[in-house]
Design a binder for these strands. Structure first.
Lengths: 335, 335
DNA sequence: GAGGTCCGGGCAATCGATTGCGCCGGTAGA
DNA sequence: TCTACCGGCGCAATCGATTGCCCGGACCTC
């Protein structure tokens, strides 16, 4: 816990010189002998510059806040890895946060930033937070990058190429010869859910296939939601032979529910899902999925924020590289 | 981004007075009129005290570091919730960290704390980090609380009641009439794995059941490890009729592998596992598990650290409340 | 010999909040 | 009238690191 002053004393110089030597200030004129003395002293004392002091001086905390609705979500976990990586590269830390919906969460983001705990925020929006509420949670002068949703003008954003992902999943089923293809979508107003549904609809239209209203269930992202959607699908007059499920967790729930209902996957029903986590691979049958670059999503979002803190304007990006890729496993088969 | 000085100016007083009013210093003699002026000014300017400045002054960052080997693990996720809760109560933040094994990770923890980014660290040890390596990663003067492992004298610790958990799981199988009960354990030197194995062995002994060496496979915590262990179990001369699996992720892998091998669960093989996450519930068959209080684990660990920062000595605790509880689902049945 | 230049470093302000101590004016008690 | 005391508030140091500016001496040049 040595301070710069301690190092300076040990080296017999002033703080100024010690600082200039240790920060590698080349413009400073300091003799090589002195430089060595300072560096040796720093090493001997195990000097580590105080982040607190630097934060105060530079008006920068060197941390980004990561605010997510649910940390138990595997999707979040994969993304987190990317955020961490990017933050590390920039020498920054990641602070985990929670923000309640308004009114209790009102202004919290602003506080977080105003208090200087973090320099900016990565925000994954809760499903139930609409645009107005979101705008309220955001302050005016808080650097925010939204993950998987958008709010043009108020924040930057980075989203997956959800349309392409859903198209790929749907096309896979079409190519297998399925014609009655259902869709377990996310909640209605969620950005991501909307885009994935769009990809599904587009592909169906292009293939000249019709979509019966009862084939589309707007459930949610979780396993329970996927399971709950199954009876609705099965009771449809013309039962689909295949399903596109918008999220891997919901797919897991759906496949289980299908099994319980005596519907075999893939013999009686093909299931393809979007997002690829370890759960999809571990399942029996292993789930055919479309892999979207979650890690890259986190990395890019963090990058947009960090660059913005460096002066670049906030941006709205789609993570299209690496492109969505179909991971063929056991849950789909030709009709 | 108003500072205390701004508030003071607006209220027509000095910084000192503004500070005393806003911090609610009762010993300070300030007239009620002045107090009101200051408070109004603070509100009008949306004053939020700078965390950076306070951190410097108090030599406290107000954050704890949470260092885990793998954030994609559902076990981690549940625990994280508890850590967050406890930190919030204390007005602290949670900083996510990563620490590589020595030599590259050597001294990193010390740096983290010495630099003042965090006041202390919660550390969930990597499976492959032995005691010596762990001691090296730790500095000398870093407040550390280990989660699910121990290193007496060097750090505090909080662990689950793994023995009781494994006993409960094993006893459940015994009561169902099983006599040949196998165990998919974690890696050999891992604290948690050792304790769970102990619970298994104790219960088997108490029930007067023998344990054939080939019934015990020291695999790992992940789905792949569980799947890989299955062939070994199935090829045993006297095949077990039931399995205790030490971790829910491994159990998922094992059950899938059993299914592929044509072994039905629970008809041909009962499987009970320790730890209860959403995956266990979503599976088909839904897994019978022993629920251990993961959230409470995180909360307690964070509490030990925070209390230590407040002056209390570090402690070594076992989270025994709520007690391990058997969650009966579909993966076990009477012999 | 006077003035200029370069070298090697130190002084002190700054970032924002907290806090021990001291100052000033008024009132009460002696 | 003088002293003591108290209410109300400001001064300035402190927490560490950074950085613009200045200073003293050596050396050089005209």
């Amino acid at each position: 816990m040595a301070t710069l002053q301690d190092v300076a004393d040990a080296a017999g110089v002033s703080r100024s010189v010690a600082s200039r030597v240790l920060t590698g200030d080349t413009r400073a004129r300091v003799s090589e002998a002195t430089r060595t003395r300072v560096r040796d002293a720093a090493e001997a004392l195990q000097y580590v510059p105080s982040h607190r002091a630097r934060a105060l001086r530079f008006r920068r905390s060197g941390a980004v806040g990561l605010i997510v609705p649910d940390v138990t979500n595997a999707v979040f976990a994969d993304m987190l890895g990317g955020v961490q990586d990017r933050a590390r590269e920039a020498g920054m830390s990641v602070l985990l946060g929670q923000v309640d919906p308004p009114p209790s969460g009102h202004g919290r983001l602003r506080e977080l930033v105003a208090a200087g705990r973090v320099d900016g925020v990565l925000l994954q929006r809760r499903e139930d937070l609409d645009d107005a509420a979101l705008a309220q949670v955001l302050g005016d002068d808080v650097p925010v990058v939204l993950i998987n949703s958008r709010l043009p003008g108020r924040a930057g954003s980075v989203v997956l190429d959800d349309v392409a992902g859903a198209r790929l999943a749907t096309r896979h089923l079409v190519e297998l010869g399925h014609e009655r293809i259902g869709h377990l979508a996310g909640v209605p107003h969620h950005d991501t859910a909307v885009r994935r549904h769009q990809g599904y609809l587009e592909t169906m239209a292009e293939a000249g296939l019709t979509v019966a209203p009862e084939w589309v269930v707007r459930a949610g992202w979780e396993a329970a939601a996927g399971a709950a959607a199954v009876p609705l699908i099965l009771s449809a007059p013309r039962r689909p032979t295949a399903l596109v499920v918008s999220s891997v967790n919901a797919a897991v729930g759906a496949v289980s529910a299908l099994g319980r209902a005596g519907v075999r996957v893939p013999e009686d029903m093909s299931v393809v899902t979007v997002l690829d986590t370890w759960v999809a691979q571990a399942w029996n049958p292993a789930l055919t999925t479309v892999r979207l670059p979650l890690r890259e999503l986190g990395r890019t979002a963090c990058g947009v924020l960090i660059e913005h803190l460096g002066g670049t304007p906030l941006r709205d990006l789609v993570v299209a590289d690496p492109a969505p890729r179909l991971v063929l496993r056991e849950s789909t088969r030709a009709l």
